Amino acid sequence: MARGNLSETAQARIRQLILDRKLGPGDPLPTESELCELLDMSRNSVREALKALQAVRVIEIRHGFGTYVGSLSLDPLVDGIAFRAAVRHRRGEPSLYELMELREALESGVIATVAATVPADDLDVLDGLVRRMEREADEGAVDAATDRAFHLALYRSLGNHLLSEVLDAFWAAMRQVRDDLADDHQDPHRTCAQHAEIVAALRAGDGARAAEAMRRHFDGIRKRLPAA
């Protein structure tokens, strides 16, 4: 069997070991020697597999301490999406529009559900973030971290961690590409007004209004996207 295939086989077996033992982030894995024996595979194949799994956050190697189940974060997905979009954008393809439209479809579709479930405490958090945006806008620009926190807080009441992580991954990918392209031509006060309208619609429990406010927000982003 080719060396690459052996590494892929070892990766699959280590993933299965994690599943079989019901391990989670931070749990220790067997040592490299123990894995070789458990998997009946060579040290080179196991070592290459561990390096590959570390790259995608499935495992974490803590030198001097051991090997553990990783964070299982979506950071590799973010990096992959952002790099793909940047490459295609520079080739004259509408990759930024495609990425933005995917975010828009997800958030506009979910926001109507949120309108019926968002608790008062979360609405207060969103109001606080809008006020922070307004202060930042007065200083020249809305901070990306504030915008990110707003979009995360929008969907917290659903209690769907995967949904929150996926939405945040697409937010981060879009932000990464726009930072790379120096896209800083937003009107910060208009951004604040758009976010405030989303919160007002949620306070009214009006899902259709919230979805329309979200679409208008993305219309603003769409108009600012740089040409290839």
Score class of each variant (00 low, 15 high):
Ser73His: 07
Val114Ser: 05
Ala116Lys: 15
Leu99Arg: 00
Asp20Gly: 11
Leu74Tyr: 05
Gly4Gln: 11
Met133Cys: 10
Ala211Val: 10
Cys192Ser: 11
Ala115Asp: 06
Ala10Asn: 11
Arg175Asp: 14
Leu202Met: 06
Glu93Asn: 05
Glu98Cys: 05
Gly205Asn: 06
Gly109Thr: 09
Gly64Val: 08
Ala144Phe: 04
Tyr68Ala: 11
Thr67Trp: 01
Leu74Cys: 07
Leu35Glu: 03
Ser73Gln: 05
Cys192Gln: 07
Pro28His: 02
Leu158Tyr: 09
Glu104Gly: 04
Arg84Ala: 14
Ala86Arg: 15
Leu102Arg: 13
Trp171Gln: 14
Ile111Ser: 08
Ala55Trp: 11
Ala55Gln: 15
Leu6Ser: 14
Leu38Gln: 00
Gln194Val: 02
Ile61Gly: 00
Arg3Asp: 12
Glu101Asn: 15
Leu38Cys: 00
Thr191Tyr: 03
Met100Asp: 04
Val46Phe: 09
Leu129His: 01
Phe218His: 11
Ala116Arg: 15
Met174Leu: 14
Leu29Thr: 09
Leu152Phe: 13
Val46Arg: 04
Arg224His: 06
Asp79Phe: 12
Ala82His: 07
Ala182Gly: 04
Gly92Ser: 12
Val69Ile: 14
Val118Glu: 03
Cys36His: 01
Glu60Asn: 11
Arg148Asp: 10
Ala210Asp: 13
Ala144Ser: 05
Ala112Thr: 13
Ile111Asn: 05
Arg57Gly: 08
Gln194Arg: 14
Leu96Trp: 14
Leu106Ser: 05
Arg62Cys: 02
Thr67Pro: 01
Thr146Asn: 03
Asp143Pro: 00
Ala228Phe: 01
Leu35Ala: 02
Leu29Cys: 01
Ala115Phe: 12
Arg148Gln: 12
Ala49Val: 07
Gly4Leu: 14
Cys192Met: 08
Ala228Leu: 06
Leu163Ser: 10
Leu96Cys: 12
Val78Asp: 12
Glu165Pro: 02
Ala144Gln: 04
Met1Ser: 09
Arg103Asp: 04
Ala144Tyr: 02
Asp75Glu: 15
Ala105Val: 02
Ala141Arg: 12
Ser71Gly: 10
Arg215His: 04
Arg216Met: 04
Pro25Lys: 00
Val130Met: 01
His217Ala: 00
His89Asn: 08
Val166His: 02
Ala49Phe: 09
Leu158Trp: 07
Pro76Gly: 06
Ile198Pro: 00
Ala115Tyr: 09
His151Asn: 12
Asp40Phe: 07
Gly66Pro: 09
Glu93Tyr: 10
Arg43Gly: 00
Leu17Tyr: 14
Arg224Phe: 01
